[in-house]
């Protein structure tokens, strides 16, 4: 994905007037299920939408390492620790695949990192909740990664080639994440009364935030319609959320823990579960920076970034010295 070189060139291409003809030709390619590649002509708004979505997605993976990293040193066994370590490494990897895909659109990695650190760019609201017990690691894998998979599988068919290809890779790895989470929940739910209570408590706290991961309802989602027309999105937020509820509720039943929703019931006629109203105020509060851990997450990322500066600097200096030696 070689945008940096094309970047300057892309500038000019991007500036070419967005005539009705060009826009129609672009939409025709999308409608014909052609993939759009990095150097192809695209409307500025398509490019901006993708940069916003892919970089947000990347930031979510990077910030998402924190709630789980919190339990690395306290995992209950060496097996669990090795698995969690591999999962957290995967999250870093996912972030990097996605930054790499976003860079093909002509935005530099440095710019994206700056936007995350300054608070200008958003990341998924879910990572602003704390991981209070070991069961939360199970709930995150099972619910949060489960919701992410629902979201991401259709993205493998996204109209933008580099994003779609990155998502194929992410999805392959994500299913390990979900299964290891479910396995943790299963062990707890088959354990002592205290362990069962821990699993139930984790479900209580993570259920609603997981449903919020799909974003606002279709009537309030400001980006949905255009993204569907551009085939960046294939299903609406509400459709994906319903799918998630439908597959997850039977899993909770299997575990013998209760989904914290009094209005939840199976509707035989539609074949779907009906569920209660989501507290959207909470969602918007968390998104606006007032969730339980927003400040802590960003501070920690900023600190890691600052603490790494001397390493980046030293590597640059060493590379420069080697180059000069080789030239001499």
């Amino acid at each position: 994905m070689y945008t940096q070189g094309l970047d300057q060139k892309g500038e000019d291409a991007g500036r070419t007037a967005e005539t009705a003809e060009r826009l129609a030709a672009f939409q025709a390619r999308i409608d014909a299920e052609e993939k759009i590649e990095a150097k192809d002509w695209m409307p500025d708004a398509y490019r901006r939408t993708l940069v916003r979505q892919i970089s947000q997605h990347a930031h979510s993976e990077i910030i998402g390492m924190q709630p789980e990293g919190n339990w690395l040193t306290r995992a209950p066994s060496l097996r669990r620790k090795a698995i969690l370590l591999a999962k957290v490494q995967d999250e870093a990897g996912h972030g990097l695949y996605l930054y790499s895909a976003a860079e093909t659109l002509g935005t530099s990695r440095g710019q994206m990192v700056d936007d995350l650190l300054s608070g200008k760019a958003k990341y998924s609201s879910i990572f602003n909740y704390p991981t209070l017990t070991w069961a939360d690691i199970g709930a995150i894998g099972w619910l949060v990664d489960g919701a992410a998979i629902m979201n991401q599988i259709p993205l493998c068919r996204c109209s933008y080639g580099p994003y779609a290809r990155a998502m194929v890779r992410v999805c392959k790895e994500e299913s390990f994440h979900q299964r290891q989470g479910f396995e943790i929940m299963l062990s707890l739910s088959r354990g002592s009364e205290e362990q069962k209570a821990m699993a139930q408590d984790a479900l209580n706290r993570w259920w609603w935030p997981s449903l919020m991961m799909f974003g606002p309802g279709d009537s309030d989602s400001k980006h949905s319609a255009q993204s569907m027309a551009w085939k960046i999105k294939r299903f609406t937020n509400d459709e994906l959320r319903q799918k998630f509820v439908d597959v997850t509720v039977p899993q909770a039943e299997f575990l013998g823990i209760r989904v914290p929703d009094d209005e939840l019931e199976f509707d035989a006629e539609s074949g779907h579960y009906k569920f209660g109203e989501i507290d959207w105020q909470e969602f918007f509060d968390v998104l606006a920076g007032n969730g339980p851990c927003n400040r802590q997450r960003l501070q920690k990322r900023q600190r890691a970034h600052n603490d790494g500066e001397w390493v980046r600097e030293a590597a640059r200096a060493y590379a420069e010295k080697q180059r000069r030696k080789a030239a001499a």
């Binding site: 994905m1 990897g93 790499s100 290809r165 990155a166 590597a315 060493y318 590379a319």
Partner: peptide, 21 residues
């Protein structure tokens, strides 16, 4: 995909860690 690295050896190391886990 792509990786950022200070030099070629680091690019190989990063590529291994990012793309061949």
């Amino acid at each position: 995909g792509s990786v950022h690295a200070a030099d070629a050896q680091m690019a190989l190391d990063h590529a291994r860690d990012v793309y061949t886990r």
